[in-house]
Design a protein around this nucleic acid. Sequence first.
DNA 1: CTTGTTGTGTGACCAGGATCACTGATAGAT
DNA 2: ATCTATCAGTGATCCTGGTCACACAACAAG
Lengths: 216, 216
Amino acid sequence: MLQFNAMQEQSFFRQLFPGLEEELYEEIEQHGDIRHIPAGAAMLRKGQTIRATMLVLEGIVKLYQEDDEGNEFFMYDIEPGEACAVSMVCTYRQENSQVLAKAMTDVTVLTIPLQYMDEWLGKYKSWHYFVIRTWRARYEELLNTINAIAFKNMDERLEFYIQGQVKKMGRHIKLTHQEIATDLNSSREVISRLMKKMEKNGWMIIHRNSFEWIKP
Amino acid sequence: MLQFNAMQEQSFFRQLFPGLEEELYEEIEQHGDIRHIPAGAAMLRKGQTIRATMLVLEGIVKLYQEDDEGNEFFMYDIEPGEACAVSMVCTYRQENSQVLAKAMTDVTVLTIPLQYMDEWLGKYKSWHYFVIRTWRARYEELLNTINAIAFKNMDERLEFYIQGQVKKMGRHIKLTHQEIATDLNSSREVISRLMKKMEKNGWMIIHRNSFEWIKP
DNA sequence: CTTGTTGTGTGACCAGGATCACTGATAGAT
DNA sequence: ATCTATCAGTGATCCTGGTCACACAACAAG
């Protein structure tokens, strides 16, 4: 839990989240805590009470739907400059998380106590635009997710998933088949088979623990 | 396209959408148009430009995800007192719909030209709470949808669906197997078979066009 | 009562993927 | 250099749910 401590960090934040009012930036710098989360850690579990809003500064956070039996279903990523919609509850009464958020890489977030949600909504126009934009963006991500599981077969979903990874991480992806299978709520064998097929088609080269995406 | 024309309609609206500022109610009454949509009509198609926000006054609207090949996937209902989140784009620039909205029954909506979205967000605190609440509620509907298709089998989904109907409509449900199948994005035969099984288990009694839920 | 219409019941079949049961690689650690 | 845990490849088999092809049941209108 650190405070903003350098001019550099401040301007970094302003670049990531542009277009807010000057006084709002100052409030954020004053009330927000910077927190580091190691890769792999869960940032928000299903059923957990939400105590703070989180804005992602660095790293990638994965959002999962989690059911009662402990299954995890990957829905979408949150990247730097975005916020966890779920954590932006604006009713002040604290609510329980429906989802599971995990740090994919080492992650830096700015946490803001919930009480400011309501306050800022009244004071800063840019803030409620930001909140609405965030909800809207997340809603659209969910639409994409539904689209995928409702209409697409595993091969299409896998390709789409990999394309997404490539866009974020480059052509060399460090993921095991098991990890991919988990994200797509499938099984290792199925992913293995499909990836083998893609390799035969010249779309990728498979190594142990990683692969390279060639298809443009 | 009618205007509010009776005190009765005004108070009806205020009951459905409680807690807004008096001046906001007045603006809504002034700028909103009442529109009737016959059962079965599409109110918003995928790709269509959104021109107005819609608040549902009467009837049930069904929201579908529509893909490029014209498949429709039912996601959730919008009931009186709720709004179509998708139509509440607050950036003023008009956007394209990602979804398909259909009138299930005859529907009455209040449409509000998009330009007021931005204006009201600045002027009325209750309005942006309403907008955020709407997005949030719809987001949660989508979470439920994803949860169902990702983790549940058809039998569980069917039971859950029926339980929901029973809660709203009582133990005597007037729905054909085909209608249920459509809502669950399944096929009539599958629903027929599962319901037969439920009847054998003593959970329900099947009539033509309707059935009775017995299981507590 | 007959006839058409719409809903329901059922068996046969198929496809996508999940699961099982292995075997074969390979990167690191010793 | 060898060992060992982990990762990957592959066939066999099973299960769910979608599709096809009908037969039948109930109701409404003539």
